[in-house]
């Protein structure tokens, strides 16, 4: 119980997005679409150098316009280097290519493969960076509000999503609670791997069941408060699109296109 709560707290702190920056003030929907657009542009880059320069765009924005400290950035993004390495490796070792550099068992490293691997590995890192830039500067409530106001996403889905995000940390607590209940009721833990697997099953099903029950209760409570799931409602947090969004659009499009066309 307490460890769950503790984690919950840490999680909240870790997730507190930096919204007082230029990027933080961009409309979340606009930001989302711009980042997706940049990702599409990245697909057009065919060599690792261009991709590396394109990757620099979100990194620099993160550190300057988004006011994310370098340390936070490194801590949050470095785990994904594993992904970069594995992607690069897979294509280098098993990719198409003529110029063989090294061969061993089923591994066949080629120059073209490595080139492709680096390109796609860097592209993946760029995807990660755009994702991080987004989550690190966006408040979830605002995102959902803007999805409803700018993108006309159905409130049924939007509020369900909001509740889903709200509950995630709570489910850790719920998990601890189920474990505590099993302990109190005297369900003995079986040591070893078999016990672990048994434990996972024994806790997962109740956790999912609790999740379903929780979802139903919230649905009941919201509907009982006059929520009808249509866009026929007003919004306390008015999300707008303005000059800042245009600037951000210009910045991303110009830099990305410049790199793609000039390099």
């Amino acid at each position: 119980m307490s460890t769950g709560a503790a984690k919950l707290h840490r999680r909240r702190e870790a997730c507190m997005p930096e919204t007082n920056s230029f990027v933080g003030g961009v409309n979340p929907s606009v930001k989302l679409f711009l980042h997706l657009l940049c990702m599409i542009l990245l697909v057009f880059s065919r060599d690792p150098w261009t991709t590396l320069v394109l990757l620099a765009v979100p990194v620099i924005i993160t550190l300057t316009l988004a006011k994310i400290p370098l340390k936070t950035f490194i801590v949050r993004v470095s785990p994904f280097l594993v992904l970069f390495l594995s992607t690069t490796w897979v294509l280098a070792a098993y990719g198409k290519g003529e110029t063989v550099w090294w061969e061993w068992a089923w591994i066949r490293i080629t120059a073209e493969g490595l080139q492709n691997g680096l390109n796609i590995g860097l592209r993946m890192m760029a995807f990660v960076c755009y994702g991080f830039l987004f989550t690190a500067t966006t408040d979830v409530t605002k995102l959902v509000m803007s999805l409803m106001q700018q993108c006309k996403v159905s409130p049924k889905f939007a509020y369900a999503l909001l509740a889903g995000f709200r509950f995630l940390p709570l489910f850790k607590e719920e998990y601890a609670q189920i474990k505590a209940a099993h302990r109190v009721r005297g369900v003995a833990r079986v040591p070893g791997l078999r016990g672990k697997i048994q434990g996972v099953m024994r806790y997962t099903i109740p956790l999912l069941a609790q999740g379903i029950r929780k979802a139903e209760r919230v649905a009941v409570a919201l509907e009982a408060r006059g929520f009808d799931g249509t866009l026929n409602r007003t919004f306390y947090h008015q999300m707008t699109v303005g000059r800042r969004d245009a600037l951000y659009l210009a910045l991303l499009v110009v830099t990305n296109l410049a790199v793609l066309l000039l390099l």
Binding site: R225, F227, T234
Partner: peptide, 11 residues
């Protein structure tokens, strides 16, 4: 605010 929104109170 959620209740007020459902009732379409002006923001």
């Amino acid at each position: 605010a959620f209740s007020l929104e459902n009732r379409r109170v002006p923001p």
